[in-house]
Design a protein around this nucleic acid. Structure first.
Length: 460
DNA sequence: CACTGGAGCCAC
DNA sequence: AAACGTGGCTCCAGTG
C-alpha cells in the first residue's frame, strides 16, 4: 500500500467521502448511445402498440365512454373505476388511503388480456422514461455522471440522482437486458464490481456482539438463512434448495432483523412459498399440509390469538426460538438500544455519528446498522481511490451501490486492482476500525473486455 | 404555470 | 405498544 490508512470517523469520513465521490462523478459511466437509442425506439413502438390494443378493447371503449376527453391511458385511478365499478371485478388490495389499488399484485387475479397489456404499458413507460430516457438526457460525450450524495439520508447512507445509479433493474431478466446493456466500459476495458457480502448482518453483529450470530459469520459451514428456512418449513437441512433458502432469507431472517413480527412474516412467507417445490418435486404447501397438518395460513390479524395447526402459529413459535434462544443477545441489544434512545433522545453510531429527532423503534434499531454498513463501503472507496491515484493507475471508480464499488478497469490492471481492493476491504479496514469484530468478505464480478453490464460474471 | 402528495416500482 | 429499514423517479390529480 502506498497510502496510509486513516481511521476516519464522523465529519472526517464524510469530508474524505465527498472528495472521493467527486472523483467518481467526474469520471462518469460510459453509455452505449446507439443501443440506448435503438431500445428507446423499440420501447416507443411497444408503447404505441399496447396503447392501441387497450383502446380497441371493450375496456378501452368503456374508458372513453366514461372519461371522454379526460381519458388518460396511464391513469390507475381511471382504470380502477372501469374495472371495479363498471366491469364488476372485486378489488382485492387497497392503497394506504383506502382506495382500490391498481398495483401489479392487485391486478394479478383479473383474467383479462387487456389488464395484462396495461401492466405491460406501465412497465414500458417506466423503462422508457426513468431509465433509457434519463441516460439519454444526462449523457454528455458518451458518458453519464450520476451524483452520489452523502447529505440526504436519515441513516447517513448515500443516495444517488440525475440519474439514480442505485436502482437500475437487475432482477427481471427481460428489463435488465433492455436497460443494463446501455452501461459499458471504456474501450478495451472491463466493468468490475466488488461487493461486501452480508455486510449489514456483520455490522449488526458489531453492535449487538451476539455470540450465536458471530458464530454463524465465522463458520463457513454454517448458514443461518438455510437453517431458518428449514425451521420455518419443517424441513431437513438437505431439503433446503436455493429457492427455499431464499424464502428463509428474505421472508424470515431479514424481515425479523428489520423489525417485522410473526403475523406479517407468516403472511409474507405464505405468499413466497406458493408453487415452490421440494427437491423430490412435492409442493412445499402439500408437504406442510399432509406431513405436518399445517394446511392453512391463519388469520394473521392483530388481537387475534393464532390457532394451533396454522402456519401463523408455527411461525410464532419459530420467532420465539429465533429471538429468545438463538439470537438472545441480539434481542437484548435491540431492547437496550431502543430504551437508551427513548431516555436520552439520541443514539451514537460506531462510525462517529449522533442520530437524534423523532424515530420509531424500527428506525432506531435499523439506522445505526444500515449507516455503519455503508460507512465500511465508503471508507474502502476513499482508500481505494487514494491508492489508485498514488499508483498512477488508469483504473477509475465509476459508481457505488451501498455495499458495492463499480470500477472501469483495463485488462492489464485487473489483477492489481482486485488485489488492492481486497487488501483494503478485507484487511486494512479492520486495522483502523477496531469496532469491526468479525471478518468482512468481498465478492468480485467482472464483465468481459468490452462487454456490457449484463455480462458480468463472478470471478474466482 | 409551479407545486405537492399519492401511488407505484426500481435498487440495496 | 407496535409491528419490514433506506433511497429516487415518474405519472397522475388536485391546488393556488
Amino acid at each position: 500500500m502506498k497510502t496510509k490508512p486513516q481511521p476516519l470517523y464522523g465529519l472526517d469520513l464524510l469530508h474524505a467521502g465527498m472528495e472521493a465521490l467527486a472523483d467518481v462523478e467526474q469520471a462518469g459511466i460510459r453509455i452505449d448511445v446507439a443501443h440506448c437509442e435503438e431500445q428507446r425506439r423499440r420501447m416507443k413502438k411497444r408503447e404505441e402498440k399496447l396503447q392501441q390494443r387497450i383502446k380497441d378493447s371493450e375496456i378501452g371503449q368503456q374508458w372513453v365512454k366514461r372519461f371522454g376527453p379526460q381519458t388518460t391511458w396511464g391513469s390507475g385511478q381511471q382504470l380502477a373505476k372501469i374495472l371495479f365499478e363498471d366491469f364488476g371485478y372485486v378489488p382485492k388490495v387497497k392503497t394506504a388511503s383506502g382506495a382500490a389499488s391498481t398495483s401489479e399484485a392487485a391486478l394479478e387475479h383479473i383474467d383479462d388480456p387487456v389488464v395484462k397489456d396495461w401492466i405491460q404499458l406501465k412497465s414500458t413507460v417506466k423503462i422508457l422514461s426513468t431509465y433509457l430516457g434519463n441516460f439519454q438526457r444526462e449523457e454528455v460525450n458518451g458518458y453519464i455522471h450520476p451524483f452520489f450524495n452523502l447529505h440526504t439520508t436519515r441513516t447517513f447512507r448515500s443516495s444517488s440522482d440525475r440519474p439514480n445509479f442505485q436502482n437500475i433493474p437487475v432482477r427481471d431478466k427481460r428489463v435488465r437486458n433492455i436497460v443494463r446493456k446501455s452501461i459499458i466500459p471504456r474501450p478495451g476495458r472491463r466493468i468490475v464490481e466488488i461487493d461486501y457480502g452480508g455486510v449489514e448482518v456483520r455490522v449488526a453483529a458489531c453492535y449487538n456482539k451476539d455470540p450465536k450470530l458471530i458464530e454463524y459469520i465465522n463458520d463457513p459451514e454454517k448458514d443461518m438463512h438455510r437453517d431458518m428456512a428449514a425451521e420455518c418449513l419443517k424441513l431437513d437441512l438437505s431439503e433446503v434448495t436455493k429457492e427455499i433458502r431464499h424464502v428463509g432469507k428474505n421472508g424470515f431472517v431479514f424481515a425479523e432483523f428489520y423489525g417485522s413480527y410473526y403475523k406479517a412474516v407468516a403472511r409474507g412467507m405464505w405468499a413466497l412459498i406458493q408453487g415452490v417445490k421440494l427437491p423430490d418435486g412435492m409442493e412445499v404447501l402439500d408437504y406442510l399440509c399432509n406431513v405436518h397438518g399445517i394446511g392453512r395460513l391463519g388469520l394473521c390479524e392483530s388481537g387475534h390469538e393464532p390457532e394451533p395447526g396454522t402456519f401463523e402459529h408455527h411461525i410464532m413459535q419459530v420467532e420465539e426460538y429465533f429471538w429468545k434462544e438463538m439470537f438472545h443477545a441480539y434481542y437484548k441489544w435491540r431492547q437496550d438500544f431502543y430504551r437508551a434512545y427513548v431516555k436520552r433522545g439520541y443514539f451514537d453510531t460506531l462510525t462517529g455519528f449522533r442520530c437524534q429527532g423523532h424515530m420509531k423503534r424500527n428506525d432506531v434499531i435499523n439506522y445505526p446498522v444500515q449507516g455503519s454498513a455503508f460507512h465500511c463501503l465508503l471508507w474502502a472507496l476513499i482508500h481505494l481511490n487514494w491508492e489508485l491515484k498514488a499508483r498512477k493507475m488508469s483504473t477509475v471508480i465509476i459508481g457505488q451501490i451501498h455495499d458495492s464499488i463499480i470500477a472501469d478497469v483495463p485488462d492489464s490492471e485487473f489483477d492489481e486492482y482486485v488485489e488492492i481492493a481486497k487488501q483494503i476491504m478485507d484487511e486494512e479496514i479492520r486495522k483502523v476500525w477496531d469496532w469491526i469484530i468479525v471478518p468482512l468478505e468481498v465478492e468480485v464480478e467482472r464483465t468481459p473486455v468490452d462487454g456490457d453490464w449484463t455480462q458480468k460474471e463472478v470471478f474466482e
